[in-house]
Design a protein around this nucleic acid. Structure first.
Lengths: 178, 178
DNA sequence: TGAATCATGTAATAGGTTACATGATTCT
DNA sequence: AGAATCATGTAACCTATTACATGATTCA
């Protein structure tokens, strides 16, 4: 995951490890670790796999700074990841990954692919909401009140996500028309 | 995290590794791995640390089955974890952990502690919503549309959580009155 | 009896966490 | 000159993933 987050950020803008650390530490991308022990080894791995390469950009100062940018292979790998089909497990347990993909998507795959992604997302989400609703309507009398409420919180979260999806799809469709 | 999830489940009901695997594989607790390579080593670690011990329960059949239950130390460890103060990082990046704690809470710490937890949760969440709102209102023109929408999705998710929290608090307060 | 499921494990690998370490540059 | 921050790395440890392995019990 960290690797793909880095690929997505580097596609938008070539950056150094330090800059990536600041993004992870100071923006809402904080679910990723900003520790050097995570970032630098991840950059090395991506470099070994030829998905990124040191950018020729010397930067404004002479300061030591190794900026990386995507190679062609890196772009391909990022696109493949973004295009992977969505399954129920993604929706149930990895909404954050789907949202990360989405955040990188229209700059990488374009608007039409993004709309297709959102539609698939919506389909899978509705299907999962149905499953979860059925579960919640089952016999939960053995459960503590807090466990039941926690379940309800999860369901409400998915419903909020569904509402947002409808809005996002409408936004993109409006945009394509223009 | 997996360790605490196991402690919470075992406190509610002594279980074998296989039963835990089924819970993780077939219920909304699916964010935890149900692979034997995760569960059994985790159980061994908890046993080594004397937080769980083999239950004397031989089970209804003769079938080989190692059920575990919490030791006193295990109960203490679980309670300490549940009682740890909530900080902004938890709310921003580990909502799932907070909800896991909550799910285990009223059976372990009781209703009053649960209400206190929910109030603290609400306070931290509101504070983080304010931070995030300010961020969203900043200059986002450099961002792709999809990134902006992803941010909005996050914010809406937190708002849904806040609404749920108010409801959960009201539910518990009603309950304590009775 | 054979298939399915119950049930528990191990080994290799990969990746993250925490803590430590180092030096350059900027700012006061 | 000294503090803060820029900037990159390493090492030890822990844990999850993936795949493999094994045997018991139940059921058709």
């Amino acid at each position: 995951m960290l690797g793909y987050a880095i690929l997505g950020l580097l596609r938008a803008k070539p950056s150094s490890g330090y800059e990536l650390r600041k993004i992870f530490g100071e923006t809402p991308m904080g679910s990723f670790s900003d520790s050097p022990g995570a970032i630098y080894p991840a950059l090395l791995r991506l470099e070994d796999r030829k998905l990124i390469a040191a950018s020729p950009d010397a930067g404004p100062t002479q300061r030591r700074r190794k900026a990386f940018q995507l190679t062609r292979g890196g772009v391909v790998a990022l696109k493949e990841w973004l295009r992977a089909p969505i399954n129920e497990t993604d929706v149930a347990n990895r909404l954050n990954v789907l949202m990360l993909k989405f955040a990188f998507m229209d700059g990488t795959l374009g608007e039409r692919a993004t709309i297709a992604f959102l539609r698939e997302f919506e389909r899978e989400l509705n299907s999962y909401v149905a499953v979860l609703t059925k579960y919640v309507q089952g016999d939960l009398t053995h459960m503590a009140m807090s466990s039941r409420l926690a379940l309800q919180s999860g369901l409400l979260g998915y419903l909020a996500q569904a509402k947002w999806l409808a809005h996002a799809i409408a936004t993109y469709e409006e945009r394509v028309k223009l």
